[in-house]
Design a protein around this nucleic acid. Structure first.
Lengths: 207, 207
DNA sequence: TGGTTCCGGTACTAGTAGGTACCGGAACCA
DNA sequence: TGGTTCCGGTACCTACTAGTACCGGAACCA
């Protein structure tokens, strides 16, 4: 009879060579690379294995299916995201938003959005992928923006009837569209233009 | 030797039963239906044929490959789009934008955006698909918005330094994100909230 | 009327990719 | 040291699908 893998026995239930935890990240990041380049369909398990210099066995020892691997890869990508408890607070909404996004590599952001766009189509078919995409990635970005905007409203920088909820989605949505639909990279110029031409006027307006 | 199919001889070069032109639209619309439900990968030629009550022969007699069929289907979808020469002109930007989009079936718009989102990933792989998606569909919508916004600026309704270029992309981008990333349908409430909370404040602002 | 091409439908081919099994070798444990 | 599990790599099985060939029948033309 097999050792059953309850939480209580999981740590000491096996003998033999240990599962090399460092391979997990290598495989997940190889999956993200291939995902960004070829989309979900083009991402074959053999391609990911080759990129990670891993065997397919090592992959299926960790994830039961391609779908499971992709879900984990997307969540892995989200882990390096915004820290909600340490948001910038410069006293200026413009500087807060810039301080939130510009320290991140914009190339990395473009790649991330390209991955999300490539998975958008799978959201309708594979239940778990859609949740992983929205919750773990764009969700936190929108939440951070909402907090920054609400602060600006509260301190009188924005008009009091501004809707932080809707406005918080502007930059992520337009970045996603630029990356996913137009295939253009996200640049600092694009972000600042978005801020100065769309978001700030909308927040600061007093008609 | 085969009859060569130059433009000059194409109309009279063949004998026998004529190619039934009405089947074209039936196949293209079946392709769009399946595309909206399953995405590019899930759209099999057999599924489209069954939906259109057509044989696969009739499909390959018209399009050389699945890719060609999809490109044509996307362009076919775009044909029922905005008429740039007959845009609404009510004297109010809010009413103009609403008059532009609300007469269209919002369910149809949601479906269209779902199709575009499903094809976004293929844009990087298949050259033609990306162009068909952007040029023929979102492109005209953005152009129409830009004209309406520029008119509002010109007649003094909007602030004179508003950037019609960037602002014209707000509604399409946020609709695409809502449909493609969040999987939510486009409703009249969503559009009006977008208008009143984001676009109009940004256009009307005079800080 | 006979030849040609289209029609919907079906059978088939060929290539691809998810997933499994196994290899020799290495790491770990008792 | 012997047994077990992991490692990268490869061969293999199986299911699916783009694309082709062909069927009997219908439409068209000379």
């Amino acid at each position: 009879m097999d050792e059953h893998e309850n939480a209580e026995t999981a740590s000491t239930s096996k003998s033999g060579r240990k599962l090399d935890e460092s391979r997990d990240a290598a495989i997940l990041e190889a999956a993200l690379d291939v995902l960004a380049e070829t989309g979900y369909t083009g991402m074959t398990m053999a391609l990911v294995a080759a990129r990670a210099k891993a065997g397919k066995g090592a992959m299926y020892r960790r994830w039961a299916s391609k779908e499971d691997l992709v879900i984990d890869a997307v969540r892995h990508m989200a882990r390096r995201d915004v820290d909600i408890d340490a948001l910038p607070d410069t006293g200026s909404l413009r500087d807060d938003i810039l301080a939130l996004i510009l320290p991140e590599s914009l190339e990395e952001t473009s790649k991330r959005l390209r991955i999300l766009a490539g998975l958008a189509s799978m959201a309708t078919v594979h239940e778990g992928i859609g949740e992983a995409v929205t919750d773990a990635n764009v969700g936190e970005w929108i939440t951070a923006n909402r907090i920054l905007i609400q602060r600006a409203i509260d301190r009188g920088e924005g008009r009091p009837d501004a809707r932080a909820d809707a406005l918080a989605r502007v930059i992520p949505a337009m970045c996603a569209a630029r990356s996913g639909l137009e295939g253009q990279p996200i640049t600092a110029e694009f972000i600042t233009a978005l801020l100065d031409d769309v978001l700030l006027p909308a927040v600061l307006a007093h008609p």
